[in-house]
Write a protein that binds this DNA or RNA. Structure first.
Length: 577
RNA sequence: GCCGAUGUAGCUUAAUGGUAAAGCAAUGGUUUCGUAAAUCAUCGACGGCAGUUCGAUUCUGCCCAUCGGCUCCA
């Protein structure tokens, strides 16, 4: 009996116990579904009246009470007609069973837990008795209801919204505490809190989803841009800057208006309808069309640090991760069909170069044709094949994301894992056969024949805003030296050291360090504390000893006091980094 | 947009149907200090608009923003 039960089985069973508790506490509740998920479980309910998270302790108590009753989970089979009778008041279950039995006449499996019956194929624990003995006993204390949220029935926003209750569950109380602790840590590195605290950026009610970049934040922003530019020019990209507002007729031609207008901002000029661009491509296309192109011009790589505007639904905004004014490290490559693979190969190399300095693990996904795609299936297949081939040739392992492509073409998405194990979508490489068609793009091949190029849309960091948000959380605010907006603070011990401290500061600035003299009327301790909070990489304390030997005393972020060093040596040290 | 919650000073929090309290920050003094908060004083706030009420920061409604999710997404 002391045998370990599979945690997913436990989680799934807890979801049923939760539903049972809801049935007892809120008669008339209709039940959706309740699966095990990562770290826990949830169950969706259609409640007779709405509840809030204040009710969670009560529900949790009821669940423990049910567990104490030693209730068994009994599996049985029912014919569809018996099922329909038994569940006549459970419209969601009836809907599920209708779909399940559409292609089969087999009996359906149900589970009975005390007075609660649910459509379910299992597996489950045998009975809550298992929770009372041996190792499993801990589980009673290792679960917790965490939050209450709305969720559309079957994940479709056209369906009614159900009330979802989330819980977390582990094998041991210890694991639960570890998890809660980790959540707290993650909260501490929340970029939305860190940003204003480190004086990097802020948000205002007057401009939802549009960051105000402060000086220090913009320094980081510009450093990343510099990093991007270096790599771009190495690979023969031209950089351009194009308008943010363009005539709606262009967006109609590109297909964006039809597919994307709910996410676009519009404005009017002398009766002419204009749109803030939600993407950079149509502008770049106009640029391409300015003159006839030859095969010698291809691949034509046009990069733009484009600002695009996307009108997001209000509940979707999230700090820098989801903004409405987005800066993309964007580029469009006009390429001959036969050169797609080699170009994608180069791009994959560029991706690696971009991510190299950030110690993040990269994952690659291939996304295929979505349901609302434009263009014919055959072209899509060809494009998907080209991407697959390039990935294979470069020995890159990738995951498949069915139906997740852009409406104009399949794409390769770059995801990264951050330091606390979360995954983020960053860059994207998208093939596009349709925009060239719509805009009638051409080039002249080596036999003087007109041919149609392909466009590759690509962003490496994705959006600078999101990327900075991720970096802040990845490094918990302690950015690497080269990205730190302020790298060194010079702290004089007393008033008489200010002159020497000032000289050091000037010398450091001359050597292109971002450095500040902290000569405010405060104690050394206070400034050290402040410097630690501000995540300054190096704090230099300057007193009599240092002045006498033309040296600095160094406190390195995360390491503490690392001793005295000659000023020149210190300059060398940070220059190297 | 949908479900639920939140909104008090720059930040973190308190209290109240009848003058809104504190710590940090800021500002002005004193102190000139050796590795995570010296000291005294001063300044400073009820998200917005309506309604109920003699009186609303408190109760009600609407709006806005934010948070946790859903959907969507770079």
């Amino acid at each position: 009996m002391a045998k370990q039960i599979k945690i997913d089985t436990v989680r799934h069973s807890l979801a049923h116990i939760l539903a049972y508790a809801m049935q007892e506490l809120y008669p008339g509740t209709k039940f959706g579904i309740g699966p095990a998920i990562e770290n826990g479980f949830y169950y969706d309910f259609d409640l007779p009246s709405s509840i809030s998270s204040e009710n969670l302790p009560k529900i949790e108590k009821k669940m423990r009470e049910i567990i104490k009753r030693n209730i068994s989970f009994k599996k049985s089979k029912l014919s569809k007609s018996d099922f329909d009778r038994l569940f006549k008041n459970q419209s969601y279950k009836l809907e599920l069973i209708k779909e399940l039995t559409e292609n089969s006449s087999l009996p359906v499996s149900i589970y009975k837990v005390g007075d609660f019956i649910d459509l379910c194929k299992g597996p489950h624990i045998k009975s809550t008795l298992q929770f009372h003995s041996g190792k499993a006993k801990e589980i009673i204390d290792a679960f917790k209801l965490t939050k209450i949220a709305g969720a559309y029935w079957k994940g479709d926003e056209k369906n009614p919204m159900l009330t979802r209750i989330y819980g977390i569950a582990f094998q041991t109380k210890r694991e639960l505490q570890d998890y809660l602790h980790q959540q707290k840590e993650a909260e501490k590195r929340d970029h939305r809190k860190m940003g204003p605290k480190l004086d990097l950026f802020s948000f205002h009610e007057e401009a939802p989803g549009m960051p105000f970049w402060h000086h220090k934040g913009l320094l980081i922003f510009n450093m990343l841009v510099e990093h991007w530019r270096k790599i771009q020019s190495k690979y023969n990209y031209q950089e351009v800057k194009l308008p943010n507002i363009l005539d709606v007729k262009l967006w109609k031609q590109s297909g964006h208006y039809e597919h994307y207008k709910d996410n676009m901002f519009f404005t009017i000029r002398e009766k002419k309808k204009l749109a803030l661009r939600p993407m950079d491509c149509p502008g770049t296309i106009l640029l391409y069309k300015e003159s006839p192109r030859s095969y010698k011009d291809l691949p034509m790589r046009i990069g733009e640090l484009g600002i695009v505007f996307r009108n997001e639904k209000s509940g979707e905004l999230h700090g820098l991760f989801r903004v409405q004014e987005i800066t993309q490290d964007d580029a469009h490559i006009f390429v001959a069909k036969e050169n797609i693979e080699s170009e994608v190969t180069t791009l994959l190399k560029i991706v690696d170069e971009i991510y190299k300095p950030f110690s993040m693990k990269r994952k690659v996904y291939l996304s295929t044709r979505p349901d609302d795609a434009i263009g014919d299936k055959k072209t899509w297949e060809k494009a998907e094949k080209a991407l697959k081939y390039a990935l294979k040739k470069n020995n890159i392992k990738y995951g498949l994301k069915e139906k997740d492509g852009a409406f104009y073409g399949p794409k390769i998405d770059i995801h990264i894992d951050d330091s606390i194990g979360r995954t983020w979508q960053m860059g994207t490489i998208q093939l596009d056969f349709f925009m060239p068609e719509r805009f009638n793009l051409e080039y002249v091949d080596n036999k003087g024949k007109k041919k149609r190029p392909v466009i590759i849309h690509r962003a490496l960091m994705g959006s600078l805003e999101r990327f900075i948000g991720i970096l802040l959380e990845h490094y918990a605010g302690a950015l690497p030296l080269w990205l730190s907006p302020v790298q060194v603070w010079v702290i004089p011990v007393g008033k008489r050291h200010e002159k020497y401290a000032k000289q050091i500061t000037e010398k450091l600035i001359e050597n292109r360090s971002r450095c500040a003299l902290k000569d405010e009327n405060e104690t050394v301790s206070k400034k050290i504390r402040e410097g630690e909070i501000q995540k300054i990489p190096y704090l230099l304390v300057i007193g009599d000893k240092e002045e006498k030997s033309n040296a600095v005393r160094i406190r390195e972020r995360g390491k503490g006091d690392i001793g005295m060093m000659k000023l020149n040596k210190f300059l060398e040290k940070i220059q190297k980094k």
